[in-house]
């Protein structure tokens, strides 16, 4: 019985972790190239909405994912261009984007689907969950991989890909240099704006995936502000990890676990108003505990 409990908990953890993990990997890339991306929340929300639009009208989950990727890419343009060519204020841009995402998805929800609050319909096709029978009987791997979406598997692979990109390739070296000393990188002929634009836009694809996973991964539904702070938690993971992808993944695992615990507590009868805040309370506790050690200071202006 306790075994069953832990298996379900583990699977719930991994499911809850995927969007946060993808968002925090994007956050890591942006932070490394010197753009403090606080718009993760809004980017993910836009992804979630357009994944539903794509799936509903395109008739396949793949169309949903594609729509999410394109939509988030377009939505991220103001951030990518604003912090580079236009020299805008990064924090204000991100705050505006988050509010825009919230307003725009609510508006379009009413315009496109004619509903408010939540939209669900059998015509929204979910992303298939992979059930690999040949792995089923291997003790740990079987549990870990059972009934997860391809996006989840991809997100795991991306931890390594991001790490490899950052710390082994010339592009990663330059990207880190651009983030640390843009003047020095520029003086050595590395185009700072180009690196930033490409990184911010490239990382936005991860948020498209995160959004699609959120709205098409577990349930096929979009509801207003359904990201519910996941983007901010991902940002906290980036800060706690000091922009290291491996540590960020570890932090996401922790946050995914708290999410799963919340669900678990709900299933044993606690009101969901209280269980829903578990991830945030635990996140706050973790930052306070960790704050003495890491210097995650950030002052506006």
């Amino acid at each position: 019985m306790s075994n069953l409990f832990s298996v379900i908990l583990l699977q719930a953890t991994l499911q809850a972790m995927t969007p946060i993990l993808l968002a925090s990997l994007a956050g890591v890339l942006c932070a490394r190239v010197g753009v403090f991306n606080m718009a993760l929340e809004g980017q993910m929300l836009v992804g979630a909405f357009f994944a539903v639009v794509g799936s509903y009208y395109g008739g396949s989950a793949l169309a949903g994912v594609a729509a999410a990727l394109v939509a988030v890419l377009v939505f991220t343009l103001p951030l990518a261009l604003g912090t580079t060519w236009l020299r805008g204020d990064n924090i204000s841009i991100c705050i505006a984007l988050n509010l825009l995402a919230s307003g725009l998805t609510s508006f379009l929800l009413r315009i496109v689907f004619g509903v408010s609050g939540t939209f669900s319909d059998p015509a929204i096709l979910p992303i298939v969950k992979l059930r690999w029978l040949w792995l089923r009987n291997i003790p740990v791997a079987g549990i870990l991989t059972w009934a997860q979406t391809p996006i989840t598997f991809l997100s795991w692979a991306l931890i390594g890909v991001v790490w490899f990109l950052l710390f082994r390739t010339p592009i990663g070296l330059r990207l880190r240099g651009v983030g640390e000393r843009p003047d020095a990188a520029q003086a050595l002929g590395v185009d700072v704006s180009r690196y930033r634009i490409v990184t911010v836009l490239g990382s936005s694809l991860l948020l498209g995936l995160a959004g699609a996973q959120l709205s098409l991964g577990t349930v096929s539904v979009f509801s207003e502000d359904m990201t519910a702070g996941r983007g901010w938690i991902a940002l906290v993971a980036v800060m706690l990890a000091r922009s290291d992808p491996l540590w960020a993944a570890a932090a996401c695992l922790l946050f995914g676990f708290t999410d799963a615990i919340g669900l678990r507590l709900q299933s044993i009868g606690l009101p969901n108003q209280l269980t829903d805040i578990t991830p945030y309370v635990i996140t706050l506790i973790v930052i306070v505990l960790n704050s003495g050690r890491s210097s995650i200071r950030l002052r506006m202006r």
Binding site: R168, T169, P170, L173, R174, R176, G177, E180, R181, D183, A184, A185, A187, L188, G189, V190
Partner: peptide
């Protein structure tokens, strides 16, 4: 104009790195 967090050799070859594959 140096990158404090990088090593001496990384600072020097930055932007003109010798590569092996990727």
């Amino acid at each position: 104009r140096l990158f404090d967090s990088l090593s001496v050799w990384e600072n020097i070859v930055f932007g003109r790195e010798p590569v092996r594959g990727w």
